[in-house]
Design a protein around this nucleic acid. Structure first.
Lengths: 119, 119
DNA sequence: TTCGCATATACGGAATAGCATATATCAAAT
DNA sequence: ATTTGATATATGCTATTCCGTATATGCGAA
């Protein structure tokens, strides 16, 4: 896959979108409802940004039952991955500011429970 | 200095601006006329983008005679510097595509000559 | 001071991006 | 088949961004 610098940076130029990408990178994989809760923004808003991140090949989605999980696109170029990594690592405080419930990630039980859904 | 991820990425979300930043990082320091020639864009356009990069503290300017030189801001956070570095290194081909005359950087004489100005 | 070059800013219009609300799709459960 | 919860898309609007042209400023040379 190929991706020019401005293409990548346009994707990351919106606060909601960077937060999504950094959180997903940090957690390996997150579903829409987790992101909606973590960032405390409306579902359509999250969804629109996710569509954009999918379109530019930054994220990949995987449907599992009623949930859709997002992760970094496996073919994301190394340098882009490095950009995400270094940014996330150097900005954990900023990231967690708005990470809502996701902040206490360690003590959450199953992913299903996280989504407020049972079994 | 502090700089949030979306702040940095907004600066880099424009093709002209990333090119400026990557070239400046690569060359340590460049003046406006060099950038204008290298990127082959109008002078006001370059200047406007430079003003923006100055405003967000990504670049610092230094006046020397009639020229104004730009370099990465000395207090730019490490992670931002790392983002610029890894992006530049992984995209030299893309960078040089539009780097015009600056492409033959090795064989240029003095900076003054580069600007098409004598002594 | 006046001229010429390098650089910066102002202004108006065109294009783009982001948002809220409403609606559609799709899978699981009943 | 109908309902319900999860996710996606459409629509209409506002706000922001970017650009070209014109103009201003700052500096050095004459």
């Amino acid at each position: 896959m190929t991706m020019s610098p401005p293409e990548l940076f346009k994707c990351l130029a919106d606060e909601t979108r960077v937060r999504i990408v950094l959180l997903v990178a940090r957690e390996s994989e997150l579903c829409v409802c987790e992101l909606t809760e973590a960032l405390e923004v409306s579902q359509p808003k999250i969804s629109r940004h996710l569509a954009q991140l999918r379109a530019c090949q930054l994220l990949e989605d995987r449907r599992q039952g009623q949930w859709v999980y997002y992760r970094l696109h496996p073919q994301l170029p190394e340098w882009a991955r490095a950009v995400v990594k270094v940014t996330g690592q150097a900005n954990t405080d900023w990231l967690m500011e708005t990470a809502g419930r996701l902040a206490q990630m360690g003590d959450r039980p199953t992913r299903v429970a996280r989504c407020g859904q049972l079994t």
